[in-house]
Design a protein around this nucleic acid. Structure first.
Length: 258
DNA sequence: GCCCTTGTTACGCC
DNA sequence: AGGCGTAACAAGGG
């Protein structure tokens, strides 16, 4: 599913669209915004493409920016080339019926959101103020402060985009497994040392996963999530339960509950 | 055909 | 007030 890593892949893909003149926009979903989007974009060019957490923002040379969020199964397709060939929990197909937004450029190329389920979102001038720091450069100080008043499982705290932006279900399990923190630990009870180890470890590991293709390319892969084999690190039976309302995989031995 | 999956938001409760 | 849990949402796939 599109987590921050997939959003980064989409951002890079969207850079191919920068500088090209927009000639047409077709809005198939969120009709309430169709008018303003069709008014703002044609005749203009995207100048730069940013990402914060799971939101990709395309800046316009003149006028509002365009914010994209891909929900669970949304993909960005630029010039017919899906940035992510395989996306967990989504089919591999690129059915035209699933196009939600299509932007056409004067060279005939397109930038599209294609989403079988309709949770992808797009909006002009996205509000990023409610998002925490990006997951690739959040500091330990920030997380410690944000965790301090929360009794909720650390897993839920990391998934809270207002605490830190970009983590999805798979990357949280991945990082917690590697740094040996139980996802059930109340956020306020996570040792500062452990938060520091997480912050030190996560960016490099996530970037490696990015280079391998995205959030499903870590140790806790979709196959591991489905089959729940013995812990790849120490061979103990892994647990698979709902934590913070989400299916969670962890090792009770090297990620012991507090 | 039931049930699983996900990210986000809306709600109600404490 | 704000933290917390949960339901709801869409719809393909097993």
């Amino acid at each position: 599913m599109p987590e921050g890593l997939e959003a980064e892949l989409y951002r890079r893909s969207a850079e191919q669209a920068a500088g090209r003149r927009i000639t047409d926009v077709t809005v198939y979903d969120h009709q309430e915004m169709a008018m303003e989007i069709r008014t703002a974009l044609p005749g203009h060019r995207f100048t730069s493409v940013r990402r914060h957490g799971k939101v990709v923002t395309l800046d316009l040379d003149d006028g509002p920016s365009l914010g994209l969020h891909f929900g669970m199964t949304g993909r960005l397709v630029v010039d017919g080339d899906a940035a992510i060939a395989e996306l967990e929990y989504s089919s591999g197909r690129d059915d035209p019926a699933w196009n939600r937004l299509v932007i056409t450029f004067d060279d005939g190329g397109t930038l599209r959101i294609n989403d079988p389920r309709r949770w992808a979102r797009f909006v002009l001038d996205p509000d990023l103020d409610r998002l925490g720091p990006d997951f690739l450069d959040v500091t330990a100080d920030h997380l410690v402060a944000a965790f301090a008043r929360r009794r909720t499982p650390v897993k839920a705290a990391l998934l809270d985009q207002g605490v830190v932006a970009g983590y999805g279900n798979m990357c949280v399990d991945e990082v917690l497994w590697h740094v040996g923190i139980s996802p059930t630990t109340p956020a306020r009870d996570v040792e500062t040392d452990d938060v520091e180890r997480l912050v030190e470890f996560a960016p490099g590991h996530l970037m490696t996963m990015l280079q391998l293709g995205g959030s499903h390319r870590g140790t806790i892969t979709p196959e591991v999530r489905a089959a729940v084999p013995p812990c790849p690190q120490d061979g103990a039976p892994m647990r698979r339960e709902q934590v913070g309302g989400r299916t969670t995989i962890w090792c009770p031995v090297h990620q012991p509950d507090p």
